[in-house]
Write a protein that binds this DNA or RNA. Structure first.
Lengths: 153, 153
DNA sequence: GTAGGTGCAAAGCGTTTGCAACAGA
DNA sequence: TCTGTTGCAAACGCTTTGCACCTAC
């Protein structure tokens, strides 16, 4: 999906909800969709501060408020790394995926398996449960850290 | 597994680590293994305060410290509900399982599917990732809340 | 003009920690 | 005795909120 398309959707979304397109929201939006990384609220705040091309800094509060706004609007998704950190990623033009988090270096690897998704729904149905979302996070060692661990032993 | 057996293991575990069997630890242990529910640190603290059969109350700090101790010892497991709450459950004599959390009433339903576990490992192997743990949490509506939602609509 | 948005600083929440008193071993 | 453990209260990290000022519409 093209950047311009996503941006238009964002603007439409705001308009639909009777919300305003402010400078700050634009900055946050641009910053998020300029990366393909996972990021925390604090990280994003740092990016916005550092890439101060406009000189204006978006406050922490607004960063949180805008992240919330974008998540509710379905532009980004969040999940807990399990290490007390909530990380976000943009979701437009992405397929749904799950995560493997390296306990050593924090690296996040994405993966996706349609068969797992199907089995989740199967299990949910068995319990009369209606699935609205899910989190599947494997934690352990990434390839790189495994190699290093082997060398050290 | 019998309660007495688990307790003996706990005592052995403490001994092995050169740690002491204190009154407080016993109380926390008993309280946890007297239930089959999932609980948060705060909930557990409440239980300990309310079941004040001994009159003595275990402090919040000690509750947290003991939970940590038990988790590291493999007696309990924790996971995030995704609603900013970390919940624990005891794990002795239990099989591993995953969770469905109702967004409406907070009810937690357990489930287990060996096929999903296998697929997780398969995907990890594909990325050279060594799995040490995983979290699979479905969120949505439980059977009860679905029914209520239907009625209200 | 006006409802909605912002920044600030303070509060909130769940959790952790420093320290002096305490208690198993 | 002597080291590990406890309770307290303060600190913590991340997030949310109240409020006065600001700004897109």
């Amino acid at each position: 999906m093209k950047h311009a398309t996503i941006k238009r959707r964002f603007e439409e979304h705001l308009a639909q909800e009777g919300q305003r397109l402010t400078n700050q929201r634009t900055q946050v939006f641009e910053c998020i969709f300029a990366t393909h990384d996972h990021f925390s609220a604090e990280t994003l705040f740092g990016w916005l501060r550092d890439t101060g091309d406009s000189g204006q800094v978006v406050s922490r509060a607004t960063v949180y408020r805008t992240l919330d706004l974008l998540e509710r609007g379905g532009f980004i998704e969040s999940f807990n790394t399990g290490m007390g950190e909530k990380v976000y990623e943009h979701v437009m033009g992405h397929h749904h995926h799950d995560h493997m988090v390296c306990e050593e270096c924090g690296q996040i690897q994405e993966f996706h398996d349609e068969r797992i998704e199907a089995l989740q729904l199967e299990n949910a149905a068995k319990h009369g449960f209606e699935v609205r979302g899910h989190v599947l996070r494997l934690s352990g060692l990434c390839r790189k850290c495994r190699r290093q661990a082997t060398v050290q032993d």
